[in-house]
């Protein structure tokens, strides 16, 4: 059976108008096509200004394409009447945790989405409790958001999306402003969403160690897709990634350097475990 496609970009182009804040040359998307199957964990990589944030905003109708079509669960995002349905399907988490929390108490913030959708109060209570437990923030439900750490705030924001029962979550560099501990918290939460709840996750990032955890990685440059595939196959292209201004995981780069120096090691290494055992294998055979 063919997998159901939940988000579809069909030859989409978009450019910011001069008055929309961005400088005209950056953030452009040009003839972009992409199918995201339901339940996939997709990482989108690229340097700043490559169009990856534009892609995120096109996915739930904050922006609509100049040409081409974006459909979400079969709904066209460019129709004004569809906007609520689109946003009920695709939730968003942004980079700055401070600028997306609207309430003065954690649980009230999580309730904000379902309240806007007119959900019955009892049902909202259930969803809020469930969402807060899922992200591990239930004990903090009565706290004031400004007293939480960055990682905790992002988890509250994720709970806010969960409580809307969306099928998809798009995250636009959710860990860029966090310390390593906060990043770990958020990555664990994202994996949980995807693996345990079956939610489709689109993670926009420039941290390679995060992209490694995804099912599929798409690398963008100048508003186009330049690499697309499983992390293992994408990260093999060390030279190309570096030329695009991206990092590769240190373990991958180490294997790549060794191989270049004539050391007979595999080139599809993703993490420290794989790297160590590959090195061991070579050294022990000798």
């Amino acid at each position: 059976m063919k997998e159901k496609v939940i988000i579809k970009f069909d030859n989409v182009s978009f450019a910011y108008k001069a008055d929309e804040g961005e400088t005209a040359a950056t953030g452009v998307v040009d003839g972009f096509s992409l199918d995201v199957p339901e339940g996939q964990f997709l990482a989108v990589l690229g340097h700043n200004g490559c169009g990856k944030s534009t892609i995120a905003k096109l996915m739930n109708g904050i922006l609509v394409p100049d040409s081409g079509k974006v459909t979400v669960d079969g709904i066209d995002t460019s129709e004004d009447d569809n906007v609520i349905d689109v946003r009920k399907t695709v939730g968003m988490v942004f980079q700055n945790p401070d600028n997306q929390i609207v309430a003065t108490i954690v649980e009230d913030d999580v309730a904000f989405g379902p309240e806007n959708l007119g959900v019955d109060p009892k049902e909202i209570r259930n969803r809020v409790d469930d969402a807060l437990k899922a992200v591990g923030m239930y004990e903090f439900r009565g706290r004031e958001p400004h007293r939480l750490s960055g990682g905790q705030k992002q988890r509250v924001a994720i709970a806010g999306v969960l409580a809307m029962n969306t099928k998809c979550v798009v995250m636009d560099e959710p860990t860029a402003m966090l310390d390593p501990h906060g990043r770990q918290e958020v990555m664990d939460t994202i994996r949980m969403l995807n693996k345990e709840r079956g939610i489709t996750v689109i993670l926009i990032t420039h941290y390679m160690d995060e992209a490694v955890k995804a099912d599929r990685v798409v690398v963008m440059d100048n508003g186009k897709i330049v690499l697309d595939g499983e992390p293992r196959n994408v990260f093999k292209n060390v030279e190309k990634l570096k030329a695009l201004g991206l990092d590769v995981p240190q373990a991958t780069e180490l294997a790549y350097r060794l191989k270049k120096a004539g050391f007979p090691i595999a080139d599809d290494i993703l993490d420290e475990e794989e790297c160590a055992s590959a090195v061991l294998k070579v050294l022990e055979v000798k």
């Binding site: 240190q250 373990a251 180490l254 993490d271 420290e272 475990e273 790297c275 160590a276 090195v279």
Partner: peptide
């Protein structure tokens, strides 16, 4: 710690 340090720890 850097990822290569982790690799070396294991090795």
């Amino acid at each position: 710690i850097p990822q290569v340090s982790k690799v070396f720890e294991i090795l």
